[in-house]
Design a protein around this nucleic acid. Structure first.
Lengths: 342, 342
DNA sequence: CGTCTTTATGTACGCGCGTACATTTTCTCA
DNA sequence: TGAGAAAATGTACGCGCGTACATAAAGACG
């Protein structure tokens, strides 16, 4: 390579990285030679020399539990991260959270130089996870959580306005004339479950309604857990006229469950889900939902991380906390007219 | 590290890789020292020294087009690949097919040592793609296609019995008494589209039915393309009593389209989709579908690739071609009784 | 106990880049 | 045209492992 272009290895390196100054003619000579030999520098050696992996890790939940989350959630976020990473010339390393040893795992990903930055998806509050994240922060690593907030920790986060989204959804139901609104929430280990609950309560309160504790149900974000709640809801159907679910999958599971119990199509309670995943418009009636801009959240997480990485000379301690707005998508399931008469 | 354990660097390396012979006492001394110092060898240096990246690349379609495929498809396959890779100690590098320059891209991934093996998803027959794959084969690379077959090329492939699945689905419809079965297929660039078409034709033929060319429609696997076909189907509704779609998303789009046109719920034609994605049981009526074992396909692809990688000393030229069975999942949409009366 | 074999450990070097520094070439302006 | 500055290129070395080979320690056996 260096021979063919009649220059030193160093010059080759400079040309290919566009570093330092060089004569245009030399530059061309090197580029031509590279083309002739179909030469490309070894990413491995380059990464080793610079001690940068050139890739950004994305932590996904422990594999068997991946299905607890909607595939929509991951695919949107991953696409967002992927599109931004590509612009920065980084690759995506997919990492599944190990069953044990999370504590060392996160930290060692950096220590062994497997990743230059980390994006954590599906994180939930538990002592070990928290400690692992704190350690990353102490070590000055570049990492970011998506769709999860840890209070007072100062982690970098990209989140959405779950409380507000929830508030608007419930308000919409109230404005449609519903008063007895059941709420099926996800696990409290997720900050957005807690926020959605808060939004639900605030909406009721602001409109002079009481929270009926017996109308609060708990699922795990899976469709089946929504399905499992159906009998409980059915038992109180006379005191319920609308349902608000903490995600679409539970909403749909619940809808199916109620229908299987035998509630006729046009007597289903009004219903709103959360996430506005692609399945929301597949059901009959189509499901109103609170849209969360997952794709954009992925983009922002990657962008902030990578741009900080680029000028890593600066003090690393500045973190970012971004909250993107949600948007209520009104469909048939929450409207008095269409959904009921058809 | 070496000092603390009072051994040479070489011994440390041997202990951590469990290579060569060593005294048990020394071994412990090294392990203890490693624990004390929280030492882990740099993956980067190790990869460089062995010139192996330790990760396996997964090619996904050009990003904006990812949504053409069902997220179910990717998430299942990725999970399968991921679970097997983890067992082999490999990581997953997510790679989006570039818009241009595919030809060099694939090959250079190996040349620059970014990946040790490649799994290509969403591949479709086009001259450049084919040439890029041929080049990989010439270079003796370890790679594998999932859910796509190239005739007579001798690529490693993990596929499913699409023809048979299609045959069984159509046969089922015929046995339910349907005779005029429209078929909405995906693009012919995908081998499984062609196979599904073949299965459809064979089933009709075996049961003494003619193929009515005016009942063949074409979509692009997206829900909208199914939706777009609805008016065309509607125009011939008197000559159609059942619909077979080449994937679930088109089936559901079609179903929605027909309903929007005003076909009452209980007069929808019978319908069967393909893939058996999670959305098949979300619709009303629930959608019969041909199940494709994507997760297992991902596992097998990774397993075969990685086990060959392990004993890479052998001649690399042996390829594998695996076909997994599909399974017809019968639900409401294809049954005379339930779906029609309810 | 001495020699030969086996086992355990140390030494030295290369993997293929990036880059600080040394050196050469080219340019500038008197 | 020559000295000094700027631009272009070359030289040398390190990044942190794995590993072939050399060497030392431990066993085997007569």
């Amino acid at each position: 390579m260096a021979n063919l272009a009649k220059v030193s290895e160093a010059t080759v390196s400079r040309v290919l990285n566009n570093v330092g100054s060089m004569k245009e003619e030399t530059r061309q000579r090197v580029i031509d030679a590279a083309k002739v030999l179909n030469y490309a520098p070894s990413a491995l050696a380059r990464n080793f020399a610079t001690s940068k992996s050139g890739s950004i890790g994305v932590i996904l939940p422990y594999l068997p539990k991946v299905n607890m989350f909607s595939t929509y959630f991951f695919s949107e976020i991953l696409s967002g991260i992927g599109s931004m990473s590509r612009e920065f010339g980084y690759d995506l390393l997919l990492l599944f959270r190990p069953m044990d040893d999370v504590l060392n795992y996160y930290s060692q990903l950096f220590h062994t130089h497997k990743v230059d930055a980390l994006i954590v998806l599906g994180s939930k509050e538990d002592p070990i996870e928290l400690e692992a994240l704190r350690r990353l922060k102490e070590e000055g690593r570049h990492f970011c959580l998506i769709n999860q907030h840890y209070d007072g920790e100062g982690f970098s986060e990209v989140d959405a306005t779950h409380e507000k989204g929830s508030y608007e959804a419930v308000t919409h139901l109230i404005q449609q004339g519903y008063k007895d609104i059941a709420f099926i929430n996800g696990p409290d280990e997720y900050s957005n479950s807690r926020e959605r609950s808060a939004g639900y309560r605030r909406a009721l309160h602001d409109h002079g309604l009481e929270v009926n504790e017996s109308l609060l149900f708990r699922g795990n974000f899976g469709r089946k857990s929504g399905h499992a709640v159906a009998p409980l809801v059915y038992a109180r159907l006379n005191e319920v006229d609308a349902l608000f679910a903490s995600n679409d999958r539970m909403a749909i599971g619940l809808q199916q469950g109620l229908r299987e119990i035998g509630i006729p199509w046009n007597q289903l309670p009004a219903m709103i889900g959360f996430d506005d995943s692609d399945i929301a418009e597949l059901t009959t009636p189509s499901l109103s939902s609170v849209k969360v801009p997952f794709f954009h959240m992925g983009e922002l997480a990657a962008e902030n991380l990578l741009s900080r990485l680029r000028q890593s000379s600066l003090g690393l301690q500045d973190h970012f906390q971004i909250q993107l707005p949600t948007e209520l998508m009104i469909r048939e399931s929450s409207l008095r007219t269409e959904s009921k008469e058809e």
